[in-house]
């Protein structure tokens, strides 16, 4: 899928020399991701993993032509790092950090207005295009090239879905985690549109969870605009109201936030819905055969 991560993407990592970024940059390079360098303020001019380190994102972009950045800065510094990437003209910004203050993301989203940057996350496992590369923390060995697009709020539930699909011989065109926070950069509908326009994708699996309106908004968008089959699951059928279920954004604040309400709406809007999380793979298979 060409809009977010393709064979021409040139990737940098912010917070490059840190332990997590180092590990995940190496993992990304192992599967062929075109990593061109990284940024760690104060370490500019040095080399890391055989690649140049820069003090600022602007410098990195000028020297390497980077257009994708994986942000591994810790939560208190992540908002600044994201805005630096936007300022430098990075097109796809993947934010791994879990725990960014929500008002920081409100400001980041305001700053992004009018630019061409797309923010994936925060609190996301990232993006993977099997056979091309990844920017994120997902275990790449479980994914395989194929023609199903996946978009999810949760990381591990994404892996679960991939495993069920693999058992049935289904691979992925791309898998994108939009993250588990209440305010995120890219919503479901935006990613659905990218998959709808992608010639390498035949059907899309959307994995949501309790809290917020975006699953239903995406289903409404899809009913009007999408021709490819769309399969949906919403986690948290058994979650009690008013409790934050691990993800900052996974909380039932009103009736429309519940898994049942969302699934019912998605079904009414013509989607293929999965009620039992063990049936995700089978439902995808049924959808593409229909």
């Amino acid at each position: 899928m060409s809009v977010l991560l393709n064979k021409d993407s040139r990737v940098i990592f912010q917070g490059f020399t840190g332990q997590h970024a180092t590990f995940h940059a190496e993992e990304a390079m192992k599967i062929g991701t075109k990593v061109v360098g990284g940024v760690t303020p104060g370490k500019g001019g040095t080399q890391h993993l055989g690649l140049p380190v820069f003090d600022t994102v602007e410098e990195a972009v000028q020297a390497t032509g980077a257009d994708v950045s994986g942000i591994f800065a810790p939560p208190p510094f992540a908002a600044d790092a994201i805005m630096e990437a936007i300022d430098a003209g990075i097109k796809t910004i993947v934010v791994i950090a879990d725990g960014i203050p929500v008002q920081d993301m409100v400001r980041v989203e305001r700053y992004r207005l009018g630019t061409n940057s797309i923010i994936i996350g925060p609190n996301t496992p990232g993006i993977i295009t099997p056979g091309v590369g990844k920017v994120g923390i997902m275990p790449s060995h479980i994914y395989s090239p194929g023609r199903i697009g996946i978009v999810s709020r949760s990381g591990t539930l994404n892996y679960e879905a991939v495993a069920q699909m693999s058992d049935l011989g289904l691979g992925q065109s791309s898998s994108i985690g939009i993250g588990g926070d209440p305010v995120n950069g890219t919503d479901f509908a935006t990613v659905l549109k990218a998959f709808e326009d992608d010639p390498d994708t035949d059907a899309v699996l959307m994995i949501g969870e309790i809290g917020g309106p975006q699953e239903v908004e995406a289903a409404r968008w899809a009913k009007k605009n999408m021709r490819k089959p769309l399969i949906g699951y919403v986690a948290g059928l058994s979650a009690p109201p008013g409790r934050r279920m691990g993800h900052a954004g996974a909380i039932i604040s009103s009736e429309s936030d519940t898994a049942t309400a969302k699934i019912d709406m998605m079904e009414a809007l013509g989607m293929f819905v999965v009620r039992n999380p063990a049936d995700i793979g089978a439902t995808v298979l049924r959808a593409i055969k229909s």
């Binding site: 990381g155 591990t156 539930l157 059928l237 058994s238 999380p277």
Partner: peptide, 16 residues
């Protein structure tokens, strides 16, 4: 369980 989403899905599967 590991992961918030899988933890919720596990609870859902038990309930179902």
């Amino acid at each position: 369980v590991n992961g918030a989403g899988l933890a919720m899905a596990t609870m859902d599967a038990i309930t179902l």
